[in-house]
């Protein structure tokens, strides 16, 4: 499995720490983090991660809008939504914005690994 550089976007510092721990435990690296959608767009340009994990509900700019802006900048960006919001309409909005995965909080290591593995197998299969 390819070693992936991942950027974590969430307005909760605890969630960023939890995601970082899980991502490192499953053998990948966190190369950047952001607590707002606007910051995520800027940090994406700097750190050029393989994958972004994106919260939806954030101050300043939400994760759906940030996803759209990142994909405008880089149409090959790979974004996984990690959110508590379980409504079907929200999942559809995220997919329409260009997200390739959707993981519901509370975060479970196995669910996140499954989502990352699925994407890694699709884009970086060796």
């Amino acid at each position: 499995m390819k070693h992936l550089n991942i950027m974590v976007v969430d307005d909760s510092a605890i969630t960023i720490k939890k995601l970082t721990k899980i991502i490192e435990e499953i053998g990948h690296s966190v190369v950047g983090s952001a607590k707002t959608g606007r910051d995520a767009v800027e940090k994406y340009k700097e750190s050029k991660p393989d994958i972004v994990t994106m919260d939806i509900t954030m101050p300043d700019m939400d994760g759906i809008e940030a996803t759209r802006l990142i994909l405008e900048h880089d149409s090959r960006a790979i974004i996984i939504m990690i959110t508590s919001h379980g409504q079907e309409k929200m999942v559809i909005d995220a997919v329409e914005a260009g997200a390739l995965g959707y993981v519901i909080k509370p975060i479970k290591a196995d669910k996140l690994k499954e989502s990352i593995d699925k994407i890694a197998n699709k884009f970086w299969k060796q």
Partner: peptide, 19 residues
């Protein structure tokens, strides 16, 4: 955030809600 976000799945006959 997690509890209310997860609860939205059970709000029947509604359009999307935001949090």
């Amino acid at each position: 955030n997690i509890v209310v976000g997860n609860s939205t799945v059970e709000f029947r006959n509604r359009e999307a809600v935001s949090l």
